[in-house]
Design a protein around this nucleic acid. Structure first.
Lengths: 249, 249
DNA sequence: TTGGCTCTAATGGCCTGACCTTTTAACAGA
DNA sequence: TCTGTTAAAAGGTCAGGCCATTAGAGCCAA
């Protein structure tokens, strides 16, 4: 935010429902896409922006709050605190999908179905593009999985596995989707009463890795599909029983 | 919002950075996922919520603002106005992806690449699941495309086409992704100076529809891929030249 | 020197209370 | 019946204040 001494925001003609805080958001977004603001940069303090833009601090706060919720900035308190531009993260997509599930605009079944198809793509691309080093990382993660005991740790390992796999495609859009689904399904796993399903996991992982290293796309995709179908059936059953209990109570 | 007479929001937790407006958001989200709130429902007025929850109106406003930015509610002014729960829409995903492009967390190339793969899935599912009626709708859209002249109209027809196609898969997650990408690429189309690329569009659509109606998945996928590759090359060239000009100026 | 200690200023979080604009419904008058 | 006026409700904004957190400055004692 360059300091602007000229009157910057004197919208006295709000013909439309344009709100002051939206103009401020748009300005900052514009500076982002123009490259004037980059991740890590710090916005001026609320009181300072209030002076610069000739709006009240409450309005500035609504604007910054909006940017925060949109995942564009984060805020910290204290001196040297403020609003900082952040990197994009899958969290934002995950939150949106989660909200949409709550709203009933998408269903768990649609999410898992989409996941299976997209994971197919991921596997295909991983076979084509993953480096030996990434194979090694995946193998390390599987080894780590062998040692864990708690549900929480196993989920964490699975998340690492899918994340690394998606990373190896070099496509961060796919990566964000995969990570989002992982996070959402993770909420079920963390729900008390979620039954463990460990038995064949490691075997499946081993087979999958082997096929991946052999660059056998079809085989790896089939293995992944089979595994995901099992997992998803498990989650659906759990989610269904939970909903049933809620209805009954 | 049940009225709580006991001290509701006196968070003396220094460890947690939990803010008052976040608690309010969480409460409302909880009611959503519990089914106590549904799309179309109206939240109490700001002043009313302020009284009920024993927080200032400014805090209530920050909470509602957050829900609005998250795409959960929309607000209207005037008597009979207020915050209403809305349906989930792809706009939210589109906005997030757009922001992430501005932040540099994803690139146009990654987005279009992902689109090609996901459109593959969509076509596959459409071949398997689309009804005759949906075929007819698609054909109507193509016919309409024949008549349009402006870039804006043509974009609108293309958006309808992809939306209808995605709809026919019955998977709204895929639908939202497709719609989001359409919206984002639409921003380029609407940029002044975007060169038209009309020639083969209608021919391609015709061929595609024919293959779709014959339930020829591989053929339809190939046709769609070829078309998208052309479109994307076009967009990339335009985006690249625009970026170049910006650097030069 | 070094390890704490307090003090202070900067900053976000929250509050109170007020005024404006927009929107709708109720009402009054032709 | 229609039309214009009015009042109430609701969001949008402003002004100013206090509190809690934080990092640095400066100080003091071991």
């Amino acid at each position: 935010m360059a300091s602007e001494s000229s009157p910057p925001f004197k919208q006295q003609r709000p013909i439309r429902g344009q709100r002051a805080f939206e103009l401020i958001c748009d300005t900052i977004r514009q500076r982002l896409s123009d490259g004037l603001l980059k991740p890590g940069d710090k916005l001026p303090a609320e009181r300072e922006l209030s002076r610069q833009l000739h709006v009240s601090r409450a309005t500035i706060r609504e604007a910054i709050r909006s940017l925060e919720i949109a995942g564009i900035v984060y805020q910290t308190k204290g001196v040297k605190g403020g609003a900082f531009i952040r990197e994009g993260s899958p969290d934002q997509i995950a939150k949106t999908l989660q909200d949409y599930m709550s709203l009933g605009s998408i269903s768990l079944e649609e999410l898992t179905e989409a996941r299976i198809f997209i994971q197919d793509i991921v596997v295909q691309l991983a076979v084509e593009r993953a480096t030996e080093e990434q194979f090694a990382t995946l193998r390390r993660i599987v080894e780590k999985t062998r040692a864990v005991t708690s549900v929480q740790e196993r989920y964490s390992c699975a998340a690492d596995f899918y994340r690394t796999l998606a990373l190896s495609t070099g496509n961060r859009v796919l990566g964000m989707f995969v990570e989002s689904v992982t996070q959402i399904l993770g909420r079920f796993v963390r729900t008390p009463g979620y039954p463990t399903l460990q038995e064949e996991l490691l075997d499946s992982r081993e087979r999958f890795l082997k096929l991946l290293e052999q660059r056998d796309a079809e085989g790896a995709k089939a293995e992944m599909r089979t595994h995901l179908n099992k997992i998803h059936a498990h989650v659906h059953k759990f989610a269904g029983s939970k909903a049933g209990k809620e209805d009954a109570s």
